[in-house]
């Protein structure tokens, strides 16, 4: 049914949401969000701290009632079919959500029993997960003594006691070292290869770029761009042109020609023989290069880089994705 035999069909949506709104006091934390996530894919939800990512996820996971709009998960209405939805989803929140005083094993056994396993089966399942996540040695230690990476893994393991059809992962690598982060990425990939749909939020462009089939960029409660990573990059038509001249003496003339042909500012970099420009019309690049050739200015090397997602984000929002430090949520102490 899932996974290998997956055929894209227009009605095969894991998540469909229309005009979701969530208001906290006067603050519109989620302000008209539309989403469509296809089954069996990874959907990245990218935005700076405070953009509304967690709130959207909490609404979709039935933890918060929306103040406007509607949504369905696997065709089940969010407002009326909460139980059906809850039996198919799992949520790994932004902060570890286990009983820190219990051991890893005890936590997983508890979760398995709450999912309906009998005690003996629950122990077997907990053991399997601890083994798979490389936590066997820590099984009998209290979770409060785990390292950040171990906590994150046990937290995800607790969400996978029964493989969910849809997994929400809120900022999976928050505060992890690179090795643990790679482990978390492996887990996500393994899940998807088994047919699970994953929706993950992130402040890291790299992560969205690497993991997600499609990405929605959210800022101040509104989705400001949506598409595959390449579509997003293409939608912002800036790229950087680098030109390396064979002879540094040609630079002033080359600079004049390029400014003329590209109609943008051309910068000379510290390397005396190179020039760079931010391009918003790639057709002009060929023009400029042809003109340089006509004027017998030899170009030893050039590159025309497409923008990174970071640059896309910068263009869309006017500020960098991760410029601000995570602030404590208001009200939490």
């Amino acid at each position: 049914m899932k996974g290998a035999s997956y055929q894209p069909k227009t009605d095969e949506w894991a998540i469909e949401a229309t005009a979701l709104v969530k208001v906290f006091g006067k603050h519109r934390a989620v302000d008209g969000v539309d989403l469509a996530v296809r089954k069996g894919t990874v959907y990245g939800f990218l935005g700076p701290n405070g953009a509304g990512k967690t709130t959207v996820i909490r609404v979709l996971a039935t933890l918060l009632k929306p103040d406007g709009g509607s949504a369905s998960i696997f065709g089940h209405d969010l407002g009326t079919e909460g139980d059906e939805i809850r039996s198919r989803i799992s949520l790994t929140g932004q902060y570890a959500s286990l009983d820190e005083d219990l051991t890893g094993m005890e936590n997983l056994v508890m979760m398995a029993k709450l999912m309906g396993y009998r005690r003996s089966e629950a122990k077997v399942r907990a053991g399997e997960l601890l083994h798979a996540f490389g936590l066997e040695e820590a099984a009998k230690r209290q979770v409060k003594n785990y390292s950040g990476g171990m906590r994150r893994r046990i937290d995800i393991a607790a969400s996978l006691v029964v493989t969910p059809d849809l997994l929400f992962l809120d900022e999976p690598p928050a505060g992890l070292d690179p090795r643990s982060r790679n482990q978390v990425w492996d887990i996500i990939r393994a899940l998807v290869s088994g047919g699970t749909t994953v929706m993950l939020t992130t402040q890291y462009l790299e992560e969205a770029d690497q993991l997600a089939d499609r990405i929605a960029v959210i800022n101040k409660g509104k989705i400001i761009a949506e598409g595959t990573s390449s579509e997003l990059k293409a939608s912002v038509s800036t790229g950087t042109l680098n030109i390396q001249l064979a002879d540094a003496a040609d630079r002033p003339q080359a600079m004049r020609i390029m400014e003329d042909k590209l109609a943008v500012a051309v910068h000379s970099s510290s390397d005396a023989a190179s020039l760079t420009a931010q391009i918003n019309d790639s057709f002009r690049v060929a023009d400029a290069l042809a003109e340089l050739a006509r004027q017998k200015i030899a170009v030893s090397d050039f590159s025309f880089g497409r923008p990174s997602l970071d640059e896309v984000f910068l263009t869309l929002t006017g500020h960098a994705a991760t410029e601000d430090e995570p602030q404590p949520e208001e009200g939490a102490s």
Partner: peptide
């Protein structure tokens, strides 16, 4: 990982 994730069943809710 993939194996252990796939091996799970879905019991009836408790």
């Amino acid at each position: 990982l993939a194996e252990s994730i796939a091996s799970s069943k879905r019991p009836k809710p408790p």
